[in-house]
Simulated assay, not measured.
Amino acid sequence: MQLPPELTPEVWQARFEEDGEAVAAEVGVDPARWVAELRADLPAVRQRARALVDAFLESGGRSRSWRGSK
Results as ranks from 00 to 15, higher is better:
residue 53 V to H: 09
residue 31 P to S: 12
residue 46 R to Y: 02
residue 70 K to I: 00
residue 36 A to C: 05
residue 25 A to R: 14
residue 37 E to G: 07
residue 44 A to E: 06
residue 15 R to G: 13
residue 50 R to P: 00
residue 70 K to Q: 11
residue 37 E to D: 10
residue 60 G to V: 00
residue 18 E to N: 12
residue 20 G to H: 01
residue 70 K to C: 01
residue 62 R to M: 07
residue 69 S to F: 14
residue 30 D to I: 07
residue 31 P to D: 08
residue 29 V to Q: 06
residue 51 A to N: 07
residue 64 R to D: 13
residue 7 L to G: 08
residue 70 K to A: 14
residue 17 E to Y: 10
residue 45 V to S: 03
residue 20 G to P: 00
residue 20 G to F: 04
residue 56 F to T: 01
residue 24 A to E: 04
residue 10 E to C: 07
residue 15 R to D: 03
residue 8 T to Q: 03
residue 3 L to P: 01
residue 54 D to I: 07
residue 34 W to R: 15
residue 47 Q to R: 15
residue 62 R to G: 00
residue 51 A to H: 09
residue 58 E to I: 01
residue 58 E to V: 03
residue 56 F to H: 13
residue 57 L to P: 00
residue 14 A to S: 12
residue 21 E to W: 07
residue 39 R to G: 03
residue 27 V to K: 06
residue 38 L to H: 08
residue 34 W to F: 15
residue 61 G to T: 03
residue 19 D to V: 11
residue 4 P to T: 03
residue 66 W to K: 12
residue 30 D to T: 10
residue 16 F to K: 02
residue 18 E to H: 12
residue 61 G to F: 10
residue 12 W to P: 05
residue 35 V to G: 12
residue 30 D to Y: 12
residue 49 A to N: 09
residue 68 G to H: 14
residue 36 A to Q: 13
residue 66 W to V: 00
residue 12 W to Q: 11
residue 5 P to C: 04
residue 34 W to S: 14
residue 9 P to H: 06
residue 26 E to H: 10
residue 57 L to A: 07
residue 23 V to Q: 12
residue 22 A to G: 09
residue 68 G to C: 11
residue 27 V to T: 03
residue 20 G to S: 05
residue 57 L to N: 06
residue 61 G to D: 08
residue 50 R to A: 14
residue 39 R to F: 04
residue 8 T to N: 02
residue 9 P to D: 03
residue 24 A to Y: 05
residue 1 M to A: 13
residue 38 L to S: 07
residue 36 A to H: 05
